[in-house]
């Protein structure tokens, strides 16, 4: 049942909350202008949930994702990972937070070109506490037969799936994907989304996907729309569509 008027993405029911943010603001001081990238955002990500963040450029969705992922600090507000407050932790602790709990997928894959697919994944599993085997992670995204290829030998979609395998191999609690299909054609994009969906379903990883592409919203549990640094609406889908059923 869509709750279109809702502008608070907090979850009221009793499900386990992975990330909780309250009244987050972010102001960038660039020269003489202050840019209000976030203007008081409340959001909860529940365990096993798949969330799609929609919004035009400059709406604040990337800023939000960066703060939630421990890449950036809010100007004000509170941020919790499970029960631990992580609003203003040190740089070293933020690194540790990312290392242990967060997986990132980038628009341009950001694979290390000098490492093979398997080695790119191993890069992360070597520093993780309870990782999957790199081969297992790559199997999960359907690349079991491309283990020893270098990025230059893989297509864009394959590279993005390696990136997903790399992000989830450490079994993070949170997977944050910033425009994961932004650089891909629709067919390849679907394959990548399938990989994300599979990870969310099979490992139960709380997953947030930023996108411009409204169609992708149909695969989410909840869809958060952002505009001007605030949450414009939150919709809960009654039923998640499979990526294969999406097309654009």
């Amino acid at each position: 049942m869509p709750v279109a008027a809702e502008t608070n993405a907090a979850v009221a029911d009793g499900s386990e909350i992975t990330i909780r943010a309250r009244n987050l603001t972010k102001v960038y001081h660039t020269g003489e202008v202050d840019v209000h990238a976030l203007r008081g955002v409340d959001v909860d990500f529940a365990a096993r949930e798949l969330i799609v963040l929609l919004g035009p450029s400059g709406s604040g969705k990337s800023t939000l994702l960066n703060i939630l992922g421990g890449l950036d600090v809010p100007s004000s507000g509170e941020l919790y990972f499970r029960d631990r407050e992580i609003t203003a932790i040190s740089e070293a602790d933020r690194t540790k937070y990312r290392r242990d709990h967060v997986g990132f997928v980038f628009q341009f894959y950001n694979l290390v070109p000098s490492l093979t697919a398997r080695e790119n994944v191993a890069l992360v599993t070597e520093i993780a506490r309870q990782p999957l085997e790199p081969a297992e992670a790559l199997e999960l995204v359907g690349l079991g037969d491309r283990l020893d290829h270098f990025p230059a030998q893989l297509s864009g979609g394959e590279q993005q799936r390696v990136a997903i395998a790399r992000a989830i191999a450490k079994q993070p609690e949170v997977l944050l994907c910033d425009e994961p299909t932004g650089a891909l054609d629709s067919q390849t994009g679907v394959i990548v989304l399938e990989a994300i969906e599979a990870v969310n379903r099979e490992l139960g990883t709380t997953t947030a996907v930023i996108t411009h592409n409204v169609v992708i919203a149909d695969m989410a549990d909840r869809v958060i729309r952002m505009a001007d640094g605030a949450i414009a609406s939150v919709d809960t889908n009654a039923r998640r569509l499979q990526p294969a059923d999406l097309s654009w």
Binding site: T95, R98, R99, D100, V102, F104, N110, V112, V124, I127
Partner: peptide
Amino acid sequence: RDLATLRVLGFTR
């Protein structure tokens, strides 16, 4: 860019 990616992935300085 590679190094920053690694930092994002949780590598320390």
